[in-house]
Amino acid sequence: MENDLIYSDKLVDIDDEGIRLKKYYFPIGMTKFVKFRNVLKMEERQSTLVNGKWRYWGTGDFVTWFPLDWHRSGRDVIFFIQLSTQSTRIGFTVEDSMAFIEAVESKGIRIEKS
C-alpha cells in the first residue's frame, strides 16, 4: 500500500519513506524513488547557469543527473541530493520550493543552503 503523500507536484512526490523523482530516467521518463534513509546530504542552491538552470534533462558534467523539467530555467532554486547508494549526485527542481522544504524537513532531513 502506498504511503500518503505529504507533498506532490508535477515533478516530485514526497511520502513518509522518501522522494519520488518523476521523469528521471532518459529517454523513457520513468521515476526514481530516493529513500530518506539513503540521503547523505541535501542542498538548496540558487538557480544559476553553473548550478544547472538550463540543464533540462540529463548531465553535463557526469557528476550531477537532472530529471526532466522543461521549466527549470524559471525555477527559484535547484535542490541537490547526495546518496549513500550511488556516486552521482541528483539535481532537481520542484514547483513550490517552500512547501517542498517544509515537507522534507518534517521528515528530519536538513536542507543546507549554499
Rank of each mutant, 00 (worst) to 15 (best):
1 M>K: 09
1 M>R: 07
3 N>W: 06
4 D>L: 13
7 Y>T: 02
9 D>P: 04
9 D>E: 07
9 D>G: 08
10 K>I: 12
11 L>V: 03
13 D>R: 04
14 I>E: 00
14 I>N: 02
15 D>H: 10
16 D>M: 13
17 E>T: 08
17 E>C: 05
18 G>I: 01
18 G>S: 07
18 G>E: 03
21 L>H: 05
21 L>D: 01
21 L>M: 13
21 L>S: 05
23 K>H: 09
25 Y>S: 09
28 I>Y: 13
29 G>T: 05
31 T>S: 15
31 T>K: 12
32 K>W: 07
36 F>T: 02
36 F>R: 05
37 R>H: 15
38 N>D: 15
38 N>G: 07
41 K>Q: 15
43 E>C: 07
44 E>A: 14
49 L>H: 08
50 V>I: 12
50 V>S: 14
52 G>L: 02
53 K>E: 05
54 W>I: 08
56 Y>P: 00
58 G>N: 03
60 G>V: 10
61 D>F: 08
62 F>K: 13
73 S>I: 09
73 S>V: 10
76 D>K: 14
76 D>T: 09
79 F>E: 01
82 Q>Y: 11
83 L>M: 11
83 L>N: 03
84 S>H: 08
84 S>G: 15
85 T>E: 14
85 T>I: 11
86 Q>F: 07
86 Q>I: 09
89 R>E: 12
92 F>M: 03
94 V>N: 03
95 E>L: 08
97 S>V: 03
97 S>K: 08
97 S>T: 09
99 A>W: 05
101 I>S: 09
104 V>L: 09
110 R>N: 15
111 I>V: 10
111 I>R: 10
